[in-house]
Design a binder for these strands. Structure first.
Lengths: 183, 183
DNA sequence: CCCGAGTGAGACATCCGTGTCTCATCTGCG
DNA sequence: CGCAGATGAGACACGGATGTCTCACTCGGG
């Protein structure tokens, strides 16, 4: 029975999201295949992570496309983006921390492109007067990543409901914790 | 010459913050001692991480004390807290990700206590009408952790200035990205 | 001065994950 | 039915990190 590489990647993502140090053997088990077969499809752990990275980037790009960042207000676009990226949040959180230990090596060019698209969204909001200008687009982008990871972690640990994911992140990112008189 | 365990811990924290997979040998080198001596003070890598955890908790508690969370408005307390915790942000970011792979094992009770103190601060802000009530204290606490990690990462990667650390985090956490007419 | 605690350097065994290989089994297709 | 390709199970060697041990050196106090 032919193995579906896509399915293997999904299983690997789901496992590594929870246990980033999982063994190749554990990944194989999680995917329901043997270690040998896993190795036939992905040369090694490195190749597997690279493939996951490519998957994460692809999902990110898809979410960016689906969110139509150029349409409507920047706030609406941010809300759509968070909603669209939610299913991939766990995988992204894994890759986010994984990337940080690539130290010397150059990171995948795809990330820079994603950074640019998100930064451009925040910049658009600033230029339209919608967002404050004392917080740099780079920081807002990084903060979005951090909040996505925190949100994914909160949901995964059971301390938050999945249905609140989008609301929690968008409201905090855009509105902040302070109470307002006026919307 | 007697080795100062405190100094060793500081060096280990500084290194592991940047490279979380650093070897015992690398840690020893970073601390300016031999691997044998490192092993005499910390039974193994596990013991070293536990000691770092204790250090991180202690610094967190110290920051919580220094921030005097019960005085003034909750906003002011949050600002003081972020400022006080900044020096330990790197270490905390390391422990934050490290804790997630403790999976089955019970995590150090100290973290729960810290969570409680921070959650209590946000709850105080909500009760006083200062903070909005549609975001749970648990989420605000988790979000603070995420923003601290993102901020530390931004500064460490050179994409942000250390002097902006406190402002970036506090302003985003409390005020959000939206521009306001009124302070 | 001498002694002992503490340290550095290195050897050594061990464990764990990895990568490769072989062989038996199974499945789908002609 | 029979074959070819794919899979599962396991053995095996390799490398890296770890933990332990020994031995020589040094520094500081009695």
């Amino acid at each position: 029975m032919a193995v579906d590489p896509e399915h293997v990647l999904r299983a690997a993502a789901a496992l590594l999201t929870r246990k980033s140090t999982a063994t190749m053997d554990e990944v194989a088990r999680a995917a329901g295949i043997s270690r040998a077969t896993l190795h036939r499809h992905f040369a090694g752990r490195d190749a597997l992570v690279r493939a996951l990275e490519a998957l994460g980037i692809a999902e990110c790009e898809a979410a960016l496309d689906a969110a139509r960042l150029d349409e409507g207000t920047a706030s609406e676009a941010v809300r759509r983006l968070v909603g669209a990226v939610e299913p991939a949040a766990g995988l992204l959180a894994f890759l986010y921390t994984e990337n940080q230990l690539f130290e010397g090596e150059e990171q995948h060019a795809g990330w820079a492109q994603i950074d640019d698209r998100i930064s451009a969204l925040f910049r658009r909001g600033q230029l339209s007067g919608e967002f404050r200008i004392d917080l740099t687009p780079a920081w807002l982008t990084e903060a979005l990543y951090g909040l996505l990871a925190s949100g994914a972690w909160l949901v995964q640990s059971g301390k938050g409901a999945p249905k609140d994911f989008q609301h929690m992140i968008v409201e905090l990112l855009l509105g902040g914790a302070l109470r307002r008189e006026e919307p």
